[in-house]
Every structure is written in C-alpha cells, then in structure tokens.
Amino acid sequence: MSLLSVRDLTIRFRTDEGLITAVEGVDFDIAAGEVLGLVGESGSGKSVTAKALMQLNGKNTVYDPASHIVLNVPGQDPLEVLSLRRERDMIQVRGGAISMIFQEPMASFAPAITIGDQMVEQLTLHTEMGKKQARKHSIEMLDRVGIKEPDKRIDQYAFELSGGMRQRAMIAMALSTTPKLLIADEPTTALDVTIQAQVLDLMRDLVAEFGMGIMFITHDLGVIAQTADRVAVMYLGRIMETGPVREVIRNPAHAYTQGLINALPKLDDLDAPLTPIAGDIPSPLERPSGCVFHPRNPTLKPGSRYETEAPPMTEIAPGHFAALFPEDVPGQP
C-alpha cells in the first residue's frame, strides 16, 4: 500500500454565489521515496488538493463523502485523513507525518516571532529534541538550504529576509522534522536557479536518505523534469494526464499538456513568440460539461463527444494515462 492514496477526491466550496467545484474525482498515489509532480493552470485546484491532505482548506470547504485520503505510515495504522475531526487528532498529521511548504511564504511565519523561535517550537512539539538541540538543528537546516550566516539569520523576523531567503527558511522548517510526506507548493519560485538547484539536491537527498515521499507542485516544467518520478497534469480540478515524467514530457497525449509545453519560453529560440493556450479559464460557476477542457481544445470539432461526455483515463503507454476516449489515443488507427 502506498504512503499516500487519494481516491475520488472532490472538493467544493460554499460561496455567496453558490457551491463551486474546485476539485473533481481526483485519484493519485505517492509511494515512500517517490516524487509526484503536480502541474496545471492557475486555479486548477493544486493548492486546494494539497491542503486537503492536511485538512487545511477554509471553513467553507465541503469534501464529497465519496472522497478518500489514506495516509499509510509504516508501523502505524492507516489513517483516513478526512475523517479526523478534532484538532488534537490532526497534530499527528500536520507537521508530524506530513509537512507542507506553503505557496505563500509570508503566511506561514508569524510576524512577531523570529524564524528561530518558530523552528524551535515546531521541533520541540513534533520531535524528542530539547530547546538547545532544536536550535542547533535549526541552524544546521538553514545552512543546508544555503542561507549564509545562519546563526545570525535565525534571530531575524520574516520581513527582514529577502523573498528567497524566506522561502528557504520555510523549506528548512518543513524539512527539519523529517516528515514522511512533504507537500511542496511552489517551493522554489522565489529562488535563483543556483539556489534552486541546491534545494532540489537537498530534497532528492532526503528522499534517498529517509524514503520521504514528495508531492511537488510547480508551474516550472523544468523543475518537474529535474525532480519528479511521475507527474500529474491538472486542469479545472481534474487530472488530464498522468504518467512517468519522461513519457509525459516527451510524448504528451492530451491537448492541454501539449499547450502547456508549447507555452514555455524556449531558450534555444528567442524569436519564437510566446503562445498561451487559447481562450479563457471559465468562471468556477460555469464549469464546462463533458471534458472540462473542451471549450479551449483546438483539436476538437464542433459536436464532438467531449462536449457532453467526460472521457475516462485511458492508458496510452505503461503507467501513462490521459483523459481521452480510446479512439483518440495517439498512434491509434
């Protein structure tokens, strides 16, 4: 059984304008020692999915009763995360078995407490360490994420750090408790590429050393290519394509994945125009019927089946699936 197993995850939000669907019927697994990359357009539900793993979505969240999130830490009973009700029960998950690097670095540091005090608090709460040892370990972690003079930086407040240092401090904090599963939501966007490369090394080391599983959310397909074993591509709350990273990047089967790869600025052709995927992201109140991507899919003809019917996940190559009807699988007659 996988470290994490998500089945049929559907997440809705109560809003003034009615119930909106942010995530619909999402399935994925993350094994110990495996890195799953999650990519997709802004608003596609990546952060909402990640937060569901620790029940961190807002009070207006409604999880569909069919949804399952099972955390299976070796040596412990499997845990059905969505059935945990009390804050007390959540503590073993949040910051214990699972750590999260948030997309919004400022939001995860309390403004009036130094970085060090927060890191020490985390460690004394979730590990056996005493204060002194926790401080020493925190300084080591700050050093490992490439923060210079960590013994001085540890006593600073978040607002005194540059964007990238703040992000690194958050990464250091999340990794310091050696979680079983790390959820990293855009962890390296504020970092320069050399520091980014160091942080990616550190994550890969922890995967190899402790068998940590990682859910890695990013817009940067290069970062995915460099870190992930498998990748899942999301659009409007649904997984459009998933598979081994080589397969998906080299032979993308879904028009949406192809559009994302096409939109990348290529270093080897600076004159090439930047080409966004045509059309707008629909309002969450007007979710398209059938395949949610159909209104923006340039390869479909009017009246196509995709307008009314949601395609199944069809296997294209071993372990490589896309939301396509079998007759549309590339290479089929």
Partner: peptide, 16 residues
C-alpha cells in the same frame, strides 16, 4: 517576480 506565480500559459499571456 511579477510572473513567478503564474502558470506557463498565463505567464506567456501576461508577458505578451
């Protein structure tokens, strides 16, 4: 870092 948080498609669009 005006486009750092944007997905590649919207990024291309905003840059244009």
């Amino acid at each position: 870092e005006a486009v750092a948080a944007l997905d590649v498609s919207i990024q291309a669009d905003i840059l244009n």
